[in-house]
Write a protein that binds this DNA or RNA. Structure first.
Lengths: 251, 251
DNA sequence: CGCTCATTTGACAGAAATCAAAAGCGGTGG
DNA sequence: CCACCGCTTTTGATTTCTGTCAAATGAGCG
């Protein structure tokens, strides 16, 4: 065991040990030795709302995890139209391993802290620790299902269903977070994690339509508008029905 | 070396050696030993147009490769609306590794031959051969980019752009196949690999709109309608522009 | 308080879905 | 070889959802 590692083992100064997403992120699949290597190559970096982490077409030089805040993954067309293809939250992995260029832009949707490392370094660690690569595979397969799910949403569902689905997502995320923290989940108030523009684009609609459908849901007493960012879900069951997936694929 | 393996090595009777997609499919990343194990667990199976390979919500028991024909990956909503989230062609991998249930249905879009094996057996082989699992990871990452690409297409592009993009895809596929076969690529006639209904759903539109836009392209002399399934691409450059991605991400 | 930016509301237009019917294609059998 | 049948594709007419544009209202902040 190298002296440096031994010292860490004794003093417990590895920054990863204090990481708030450590037990949920990709790196949870890493053993002490692997975490040590990741720890060596990675560092935290702060981004302000709107900052570009990676630009489409550029070298895919970085990968990493969201520690706090939110990222949007986007594609912009030549004439300016653009589409949010993904939103990433704490513990989510970002970046494109095993490709030279990124097909999408990655930007901070809010003030965000990332744990980043060079893609090449990351790939080397993956090659050395199959368990880590396996975890990445499993997460990527899940991501693939998620995107396909959203393809269905965007492809053949109404704007009301899209908005209802988004609220269901927020509710699920919250429920999941409470479960992790072993907190009994009581609060039915959800908060928009990113701006309206991003949500609208994520759902392939406009801020205007988004606004109308939110008020539609409020009129139907499915939710109550607390303020611009917060909503109390009054009727989760009805919300699920309006999302058009009632009784389907629980989980 | 077990006797059976030795015998195979001498006589060359392994069915995988004669497989027409062997050098393009996932298994190309497998060494002789791994191919041997895959060979032991897998078998070819024929499906007729419309046959269900896997049903959404059911046990994800099978995985495998398309050998010939085409599969469609779909999701059906409670009220009958449904969406093709993917089309799979020879050498493409299908099935959901590392999950108990499949979130999507997989059906034969044409008469199709698959090389199938039990998911569990496949997972065991993956665990034993990291190179194979790595190949699956790389392919899954590519798939993810593809679906995101289509999310952009469906989310913020016009029907004409969708149809043009589909023709570009067909052209690319053909060019790629010619390259593999070392055949100089001259023929500008592309053929619909699946029925109109599937193509329309894949592009999130209707057969009616699809028909109108094809004729739009014909009127603009971008292509010539040979017959119901075949089209001669007269102006590939213009097609690319109409697809709304000119000059973007060559590859 | 006034500035800017985000959100809401209203009026309107347009692209594409829907509905309906005609035409074309492919297979079967007389 | 031609007539018939079922299916797919095309064409036409109509509707509707939702995006666009414009203006008003509201929130946040120095």
């Amino acid at each position: 065991m190298p002296a440096k590692t031994a010292l860490r083992a004794i003093t417990g100064t590895r920054k990863c040990d204090r990481c708030i997403v450590h037990h949920r992120a990709l790196c949870r699949a890493a053993d002490a030795e692997a975490v040590d290597r990741l720890n060596r190559y990675s560092h935290l970096k702060h981004y302000r709302t709107g900052d570009v982490v990676m630009h489409e077409g550029d070298d895919a030089r970085l990968v990493g995890n969201v520690v706090s805040g939110a990222l949007r993954v986007t594609r912009t067309l030549v004439d300016g139209r653009h589409q949010v293809v993904g939103l990433l939250f704490p513990s989510d992995f970002f970046g494109r391993a095993f490709a030279d260029t990124s097909s999408f832009s990655v930007e901070a949707a809010t003030d965000t802290t990332l744990c980043i490392l060079e893609r090449k370094a990351f790939e080397n660690v993956l090659a050395a620790y199959p368990a880590l690569e396996h975890e990445l595979l499993v997460r990527t397969l899940d991501d693939l299902d998620d995107v396909r799910e959203r393809l269905v949403l965007v492809g053949c569902q109404t704007t009301l269903e899209k908005v209802a689905t988004f609220f269901v997502m927020l509710l699920d995320r919250q429920r999941h977070e409470c479960a992790m923290a072993l907190v009994p989940w009581a609060d039915r108030v959800v908060t928009f994690p990113v701006g309206r523009q991003d949500i609208a684009s994520y759902l392939s609609t406009t801020v205007e339509s988004l606004s109308r459908q939110i008020h539609q849901l409020a009129d139907r007493r499915v939710l109550r508008i607390v303020d611009n960012r917060r909503f109390e879900i009054l009727d989760p069951a009805r919300l699920l029905v309006l999302a058009g997936r009632s009784g389907q694929h629980p989980g």
